[in-house]
Computed example of a mutant assay.
Amino acid sequence: MHKLRVAISTFVRDVARGVLTLTHSGLAMLGLVLVVGLGGAVFRPDLLSQAETSVYAFLRERQLSLWWEPQNTADRATATDLKDIPSRQAAVAAWLAKKYKVAPEPIAALVSEAYALSETSRLKPHLILAVMAIESSFHPYVQSQAGAQGLMQVMTEIHAQKYQKYGGKLAAFDPLTNMRVGVAVLQEYIRLKSGSVEQGLLFYLGGDSIQGETDYVAKVLAEQARLDQVAAGIKVSTQP
Score class of each variant (00 low, 15 high):
residue 32 L to T: 13
residue 117 L to S: 00
residue 85 I to P: 05
residue 50 Q to F: 07
residue 46 D to W: 09
residue 82 L to G: 06
residue 31 G to P: 09
residue 81 D to R: 14
residue 40 G to C: 13
residue 91 A to T: 04
residue 103 A to D: 12
residue 118 S to Q: 03
residue 116 A to W: 00
residue 112 S to P: 02
residue 59 L to F: 14
residue 89 Q to M: 15
residue 143 Q to I: 15
residue 69 E to M: 14
residue 33 V to P: 04
residue 19 V to Y: 12
residue 72 N to R: 08
residue 62 R to C: 07
residue 145 Q to H: 12
residue 136 S to A: 10
residue 77 A to L: 14
residue 35 V to W: 14
residue 136 S to F: 01
residue 151 L to S: 07
residue 39 G to W: 13
residue 54 S to K: 15
residue 44 R to P: 04
residue 54 S to Q: 13
residue 20 L to N: 09
residue 132 M to Y: 01
residue 111 V to M: 06
residue 52 E to S: 15
residue 110 L to N: 00
residue 35 V to P: 04
residue 153 Q to Y: 03
residue 106 P to I: 09
residue 110 L to V: 11
residue 105 E to W: 01
residue 125 P to Y: 08
residue 86 P to E: 09
residue 151 L to D: 00
residue 56 Y to M: 10
residue 114 A to G: 04
residue 99 K to A: 08
residue 132 M to I: 11
residue 97 A to C: 07
residue 22 L to C: 14
residue 85 I to R: 07
residue 41 A to D: 09
residue 117 L to E: 05
residue 105 E to C: 01
residue 131 V to C: 02
residue 158 I to C: 04
residue 108 A to Y: 04
residue 65 S to R: 09
residue 56 Y to W: 07
residue 159 H to F: 12
residue 94 A to C: 02
residue 95 W to V: 06
residue 52 E to M: 10
residue 52 E to N: 15
residue 119 E to Y: 06
residue 154 V to M: 05
residue 102 V to Q: 02
residue 149 Q to H: 05
residue 141 Y to W: 08
residue 21 T to L: 15
residue 77 A to M: 13
residue 43 F to Q: 08
residue 117 L to R: 01
residue 75 D to H: 11
residue 145 Q to N: 13
residue 94 A to L: 05
residue 69 E to T: 07
residue 154 V to W: 02
residue 138 F to P: 03
residue 86 P to A: 12
residue 20 L to G: 12
residue 79 A to D: 10
residue 92 V to I: 14
residue 60 R to Y: 05
residue 134 I to P: 00
residue 60 R to P: 00
residue 117 L to F: 00
residue 152 M to V: 04
residue 145 Q to G: 15
residue 143 Q to A: 10
residue 155 M to V: 05
residue 131 V to I: 11
residue 154 V to C: 06
residue 77 A to K: 12
residue 122 R to C: 03
residue 88 R to C: 05
residue 59 L to Y: 13
residue 117 L to Q: 04
residue 29 M to C: 15
residue 44 R to D: 11
residue 132 M to L: 10
residue 57 A to H: 08
residue 158 I to A: 10
residue 24 H to N: 10
residue 126 H to A: 05
residue 151 L to N: 02
residue 59 L to C: 11
residue 36 V to G: 03
residue 64 L to M: 12
residue 64 L to K: 11
residue 130 A to Y: 09
residue 69 E to I: 07
residue 141 Y to E: 03
residue 130 A to L: 06
residue 30 L to P: 03
residue 25 S to Q: 14
residue 152 M to Q: 03
residue 17 R to E: 12
residue 131 V to F: 01
residue 149 Q to A: 11
residue 42 V to E: 09
residue 71 Q to H: 08
residue 41 A to R: 13
residue 41 A to F: 08
residue 47 L to I: 14
residue 80 T to P: 01
residue 119 E to P: 01
residue 156 T to Y: 01
residue 136 S to I: 04
residue 37 G to K: 12
residue 118 S to F: 04
residue 42 V to H: 11
residue 95 W to A: 01
residue 154 V to N: 06
residue 116 A to P: 00
residue 110 L to Q: 05
residue 41 A to W: 12
residue 124 K to N: 15
residue 60 R to N: 08
residue 57 A to E: 11
residue 153 Q to R: 07
residue 114 A to H: 00
residue 79 A to Y: 07
residue 133 A to D: 04
residue 149 Q to R: 14
residue 102 V to C: 01
residue 126 H to P: 00
